[in-house]
């Protein structure tokens, strides 16, 4: 068993190496790796392994755990469970191989490689994008962010960009790859009280359009269209209309090619702070 595991590790490593060779852009620097490990972060997984795991998961696991791993009436949420978020890879591996006695989680007698692929996929459900390998060209992704994709008209990264939407300087450190992808392709307000369009009319008749920064039953904090903060008590307002839909365009999927979207994801995934420094800057330094 141990020897087979080692073989798989070697295979995975070889695959990873092959990727690194073919995508010179994405060398996995040992310094970064060491920092991640020091910070107690999980190891990186090759995207091909995650993808293979995703297919296996859809076939074998999604019926109980849901296609997104967030659980259903038949099985628990795998993005939050203690074992999958804190246990070791081997613990998750054994859980799949042996099942959970006394529960509806059966034993899965799959080849080791497939179970490893499942582990990688399950990990990716709760691992933020910065900590997994995301293929694509970051430089092209950056150009899309600040150009064709028009993301920077509303979003900021390290002080560059617009103020209307959330700052994305740490998006790779906060969100999983899947969450980032979904938020681009099927945008929805992440919070009912933030970044929604809002129009208010004050007691003296002034009409102000802006986006929410915060809100409660007694007060409202918005950024107006000129980028100025306007804070109100609800009692000072004559009228308030909240926009239901996200201000984020929902046609980005058709605007960008598959490759462009992947490049954008590669760029966004690397937007993360490690002790305040961007992972990207560490990468540059280690080259």
């Amino acid at each position: 068993m141990a020897r087979r595991n080692n073989q798989i590790r070697h295979t995975a490593l070889a695959l990873l190496c092959a990727f690194i060779v073919t995508c010179g852009e994405f060398r996995a620097p040992s310094l970064l790796q060491a920092q991640m490990e020091q910070a107690g972060w999980p190891q990186s997984y090759d995207s091909t392994i995650i993808e293979a795991g995703s297919k296996l998961f859809a076939g074998s696991c999604s019926v109980c755990h849901g296609i997104d791993g967030k659980g259903s009436a038949r099985g628990p949420d795998l993005t939050r469970g203690q074992v999958v978020t804190r246990g070791t890879d081997d613990e998750v591996f054994q859980l799949i191989r042996k099942g959970v006695p006394g529960s509806s989680m059966a034993a899965f007698d799959l080849p080791d490689l497939q179970i490893r692929q499942l582990v990688a996929f399950i990990r990716s459900l709760s691992t933020t994008a910065a900590h997994i390998f995301v293929p694509g060209n970051q430089n092209s992704g950056q150009q899309i962010f600040f150009g064709k994709g028009r993301c920077s008209e509303c979003h900021m990264i390290r002080g560059q960009g617009g103020l209307l939407g959330p700052d994305l300087s740490n998006i790779g450190g906060e969100r999983t790859l899947s969450e980032i992808r979904v938020s681009i392709l099927k945008p929805s307000p992440s919070s009912p009280n933030k970044y929604r369009g809002v129009t208010v009319v004050t007691e003296n008749g002034e009409r102000i359009n802006g986006t929410l920064r915060n809100r409660d039953n007694f007060s409202l904090q918005i950024m107006d269209r000129e980028g100025k903060f306007r804070f109100f008590l609800i009692s000072e307002l004559r009228d308030m209309v909240l926009q239901e839909k996200s201000l984020m365009p929902d046609d980005i999927g058709s605007l960008l090619s598959r490759e462009e979207l992947q490049n954008l994801l590669a760029f966004l995934s690397r937007q993360a702070m490690v002790g305040g420094n961007q992972i990207e800057s560490h990468r540059k330094r280690t080259r």
Partner: peptide, 22 residues
């Protein structure tokens, strides 16, 4: 009506110069 309203709102916002320029 919501859809129309938010689309119009978005259009309205996009037509404005970027916030950082003001």
């Amino acid at each position: 009506s919501l859809h129309v309203r938010s689309s119009l709102f978005l259009l309205f916002l996009l037509l404005l110069p970027p916030i950082t320029a003001i």
